[in-house]
Simulated assay, not measured.
Amino acid sequence: MARTIGSHGPTTLEAIRKAGVRLIFEHGYEAMSLRQLAAEVGIQAGSLYNHISTKQELLFDLVQDHMNDLLRELDVALAGKTDPADRLRAFVAFHVTYHMTRKREVFIVNSELRSLEPKHYEAMVTLRGVYEQRLAQILSDGVAEGVFEVVDIQVATFAILALLTGLCSWYRPGGRLTREAIIAAHEKLVLSGVAPHAAAAAPRKTAKRARNLVAG
């Protein structure tokens, strides 16, 4: 049943955005109509234009906000860390946690980037490149300091991101493993791939989480 919330102010815009995320996630961008979106929010279809100009604008805003949040929150997660191995662990923990808690937004970005108009697409690919460069820089710094052994930084960057983002296809809240155990497993996989010695020297707490994962 459609919710009746009126058609005024930021509350309605937020409701439109949340409904847009859910409908695009469940049905896809092309299949979602503005009439369907308006009904979900509980307003007349014409009232949508008080808050968004087009369906394309809504998609762009959702993707752009996701990418900006991703970059901003990553910088917070990395703040104060200088050791490459610590920064890589922090990157892995952040990426895995973000993708577990923001699964719908991540899915939309990954599956609907192609639905953006060319100028919007290029802008978002640029932001995605900035995120990728954060990881590439960590790997490069580790190689320069003799901590990491990486044959090709770009290949390693894409491989790590593919590994970490893959959990979106299988992770379900309330499963056998805790979030902490899942993070510990990914940390071990990534560190052992680029720095076996750094993985072995991981904090005892992380090692204990990994053992608990195997035992579970």
Score class of each variant (00 low, 15 high):
48 L>E: 05
51 H>L: 14
52 I>K: 08
52 I>M: 03
53 S>W: 14
54 T>N: 07
54 T>D: 06
57 E>T: 10
57 E>D: 13
57 E>M: 11
57 E>Q: 14
57 E>N: 09
60 F>T: 06
60 F>Y: 15
61 D>F: 02
62 L>E: 02
63 V>A: 02
63 V>R: 03
64 Q>H: 15
64 Q>V: 08
64 Q>N: 15
66 H>T: 04
66 H>L: 04
69 D>G: 01
70 L>W: 02
71 L>N: 09
72 R>Y: 11
74 L>S: 01
76 V>N: 12
79 A>E: 06
79 A>T: 00
80 G>F: 10
81 K>S: 08
81 K>L: 15
82 T>Y: 11
82 T>V: 05
82 T>F: 13
82 T>G: 08
83 D>K: 13
83 D>E: 14
83 D>Y: 03
83 D>A: 15
84 P>Q: 11
85 A>S: 14
89 R>S: 12
90 A>I: 06
90 A>C: 01
91 F>M: 00
91 F>Y: 11
91 F>L: 05
92 V>A: 06
93 A>T: 10
93 A>N: 06
93 A>K: 10
94 F>C: 04
96 V>R: 04
96 V>Y: 07
97 T>E: 08
98 Y>A: 07
99 H>D: 07
100 M>D: 03
101 T>Y: 14
101 T>V: 08
102 R>M: 13
102 R>Q: 14
105 E>Q: 09
107 F>E: 13
108 I>Q: 03
108 I>H: 00
108 I>A: 01
109 V>P: 01
109 V>F: 00
109 V>M: 08
111 S>I: 03
111 S>C: 10
112 E>D: 07
114 R>I: 10
115 S>Q: 11
118 P>Q: 12
119 K>V: 04
119 K>A: 12
120 H>T: 00
123 A>Y: 00
124 M>K: 09
125 V>L: 15
127 L>W: 09
127 L>G: 01
128 R>E: 07
129 G>M: 10
129 G>V: 00
130 V>L: 07
132 E>P: 02
133 Q>H: 14
133 Q>F: 12
134 R>A: 01
134 R>V: 01
134 R>Q: 04
136 A>Y: 01
137 Q>K: 15
139 L>A: 02
140 S>I: 10
141 D>K: 12
141 D>M: 08
142 G>T: 02
